[in-house]
């Protein structure tokens, strides 16, 4: 028994306890029952724990929306910013304080609609920021309006006859705009999501992670997608894990399934380093 105890003490870091990463006096959180954002928050904290990040060195920047409120619950440096602009704030923060691990929590409407311009330019610059985009296909906080990622023919409060617009593939967008790390995962696979977020935080350069979350109360109810357990289980049929170890792809049976896992990873020059070296050399020259 004594031997066992000793090995437990010596082997690796302390067991992950999400409570040590939360501002517990703010709980229970404001999210609706069954909202997947809480699962994504746990996965993010778990990834930070496994990477052994110092809580004082984590800076969480969030925008407006259901996802934007998540930052407030984390016991770290948090920054609640204006709608669509968390990436802009994070860019300034990271350039001023390169020692911080800047993590942006944003939603599909925040990141792709209002902040679409900031996203593509953040991807282009390739500054060392981790962007976790929680995609629940709807503007949840403001009452369920259509968002750029709402699937076609889905009902929202602003599309009472079904969504007729085409849908954004945010990972393709980020990849095309130049993000050096792009990944996608569903909340139901929490350990896999944690591993993906770990890779993303570890990556040097702009890393974009789309987390498929579920909005049960507003989007699920309007579209008859079932209760939270049904919605979270259906995520498994919507994903196509084809980048983690070459898992067999049954594409013909799931034409609408999204690829998950690490989709892009490159070693493009990180903007912060380039910027600092240019500044240093220009000062020398002056």
């Amino acid at each position: 028994m004594a031997k066992k105890k000793q090995s437990a003490e010596t082997s690796g870091p302390k067991e992950f306890d999400v409570m040590s990463y939360l501002r517990r006096d703010l709980f229970p959180h404001f999210l609706c029952p069954g909202c997947g954002h809480g699962i994504a928050l746990r996965a993010l904290m778990w990834a930070a724990h496994e990477l052994g990040l110092d809580k004082d060195k984590i800076a969480i920047v969030s925008g407006i929306g259901c996802s934007g409120r998540l930052g407030a619950y984390v016991d770290a440096n948090t920054f609640h910013t204006t709608h669509g602009r968390p990436l802009a704030y994070a860019t300034g923060l990271k350039l001023a304080r390169p020692d911080l691990h800047v993590i942006v929590i944003t939603g599909d409407g925040d990141c792709l609609a209002i902040g679409g311009n900031h996203l593509i330019h953040a991807c282009r610059r390739n500054l060392d920021i981790t962007c976790m985009m929680l995609n629940n296909e709807v503007y949840g906080m403001t009452g369920g309006q259509v968002s750029p990622t709402t699937s076609q023919d889905r009902y929202t409060t602003t599309t009472p006859t079904g969504n007729t617009e085409a849908t954004f593939d945010s990972c393709k967008l980020a990849e095309a705009a130049g993000a050096s790390f792009v990944g996608r995962e569903v909340t139901v696979q929490t350990p896999t999501l944690k591993n993906l977020l770990k890779d993303a935080i570890d990556h040097k350069g702009f890393s974009f992670v789309e987390v498929i979350s579920d909005c049960t109360e507003i989007y699920g109810r309007k579209n008859d997608l079932g209760n939270s357990p049904e919605m979270i289980l259906s995520q498994k049929s919507q994903m196509r894990p084809d980048s983690y170890g070459g898992v067999i792809v049954d594409e013909p049976f799931r034409p609408n399934a999204l690829p998950t896992g690490v989709l892009t990873r490159s070693d493009r020059a990180e903007y912060g380093e380039t910027y600092r070296s240019t500044m240093a050399s220009s000062k020398k020259g002056a």
Binding site: A8, E15, D17, V18, M19, L22, F27, P28, H29, L31, P33, G34, C35, G36, H37, G38, I39, L41, R42, T187, V188, T190, P191, S228, I232
Partner: peptide, 14 residues
């Protein structure tokens, strides 16, 4: 524990 969106469940193994 992983899938609790409200972070209300904690599993202790030791």
């Amino acid at each position: 524990e992983w899938l609790c969106p409200d972070l209300a469940i904690t599993v202790h193994r030791t």
